[in-house]
Amino acid sequence: MEDNPLQNELISDLLEVQNLSVNFETIDRTVEVLRSVSIRIEKGDAVGIVGESGSGKSTLAQAIIGVLDIPPARIIDGVIRFNGENILQRKTKSPNFRGKGINMIFQEPLTSLNPVYSVHDQLEEAIRIDDPTVDAKKREEIIKRNLREVMIRDVEGVLSVYPHQLSGGMRQRVSIAMVLIQRPQLLILDEPTTGLDLIVQRKILKLILNLKEEISSSILLITHDLAIAASVCKRIYVMYAGRVVESGSMRVVLSSPSHPYTIMLKNSVPEGYMDEGPLNVTSGSPPDLRALPSGCAFHPRCPKAMAVCREKVPELKKVEDEREVACWLYE
């Protein structure tokens, strides 16, 4: 990163992750979950992280918001700067960048909402924690306004129910409403629509986009679905086995993917009818992080693998403006 001409400007970035490496350590083995991952998010940006299971995308999100279980996780190397400040060095128990700074929406709202609190009480608690000076009347106002903002029509009806009584889409709306109370500068969404029905999924995605404009926050969307990332994000990072293998503007990466893995990911999603022939994928599965292949982790599945791929890990190289690929093909 020393030779990066953007170095001085990077401070204007909202979030900057540099060379982050995370291990999961147990008594008998060490697993490399993230390896020198660097991402950056500007103010107002919508960035997607796409990868399959074991790519490290959720670990990255947890590291950013500071909920990694340490141990077994251990941050080996790297910095995470939020508004120019290294948040990894913070020693306090409850870091103040969380909430108004960075907030996160999880995949399964049933586990992120408290089952013994009604919707009203959960939201009220969030407001009290955010600002203890707000009086009861004002709190009610904020609760109702937030629920209306997430397109819940029957606000009164929703207030008194418990999370399990709501449908998946409604639950996700409530958890979004809760996060909105604090108007975070950066919103991390970890698979926010997985498990939701198509029509609901579209509505939630649209809601997220609208709210992003309204509270002018930045978005980091983590997903396994390229199409969903494409519908929300302007830039994308593709991850494989704990490393970023390709990054760039969404439009360019989608129209002309460079890394063989990105190409395969794009080809894996059926788009047409059967007569267009079988899907163009190679055999093999995402690697076991406990036994990573030597060199480039993708080489056993790569149709274009060369001798060098088995020996050395390719570095992320800039191939065009704003576009980086980690592949020996582009050396």
């Binding site: 990911l265 999603v269 079988p278």
Partner: peptide, 15 residues
């Protein structure tokens, strides 16, 4: 399943 694995299984089912 992951999307790349889904694609493999779909191809297998067609075959």
């Amino acid at each position: 399943l992951d999307v790349s694995i889904q694609a493999q299984i779909l191809n297998l089912l067609i075959k």
